[in-house]
Amino acid sequence: MTSETMDEKAAEAALPLATPGAIPPEELERLTGDIVAALKTVYDPEIPADIYELGLIYKVDIDDDRNVAIDMTLTAPGCPVAGEMPGWVENAVGAIPGIGRVDVTMVFDPPWSQDRMSDEARVALDWY
């Protein structure tokens, strides 16, 4: 099975890394944009910035059947919403038309750091 992937650098730049597969490039571009937009609707309740701009999304894979696998982390392993946030991400991405199953995996390697934050998040948080 071929997989379409946005790796860490592509996710940070909001650009898909498209590899030849069953999904037409135009559809892959639309799905990628829709996934990024959906991820930007999920906020860390303790930090007024969305999880995408915070750099909490490590990997997004879209397979040929339009199922999505997401690896994400938290700002800290003891985050009080650790059990809830993957569900928020699944619901946000799962609401996109044309998306199949959404699986979110919580990972802590590499650990999150402020270096993963976008400039937008740094400005919003006054952390530059």
Rank of each mutant, 00 (worst) to 15 (best):
D71N: 04
D71S: 07
M72V: 03
L74D: 00
T75C: 03
A76R: 05
P77M: 07
P77R: 15
G78T: 15
C79L: 01
P80Q: 04
V81H: 11
A82Y: 06
G83F: 08
G83R: 09
G83V: 13
E84Q: 10
M85Q: 04
M85S: 02
M85E: 05
P86R: 09
P86Y: 13
W88R: 02
W88L: 02
V89M: 04
E90R: 15
N91Q: 15
G94M: 04
A95D: 13
A95K: 08
I96G: 05
I96C: 12
P97S: 03
P97V: 05
P97G: 06
P97K: 05
G98C: 09
G98P: 12
G98I: 13
I99A: 02
G100H: 09
R101T: 15
R101N: 14
D103V: 12
D103A: 14
V104S: 04
V104I: 14
V104W: 12
T105P: 02
M106L: 11
F108E: 08
F108G: 11
F108L: 07
D109T: 14
P110F: 07
P110W: 14
P110A: 14
P111E: 10
P111C: 04
W112F: 04
W112Q: 13
W112L: 04
S113D: 14
Q114H: 03
D115Q: 13
D115N: 10
M117Q: 02
M117N: 11
D119R: 12
D119Y: 14
E120A: 15
A121L: 13
V123W: 09
A124Y: 03
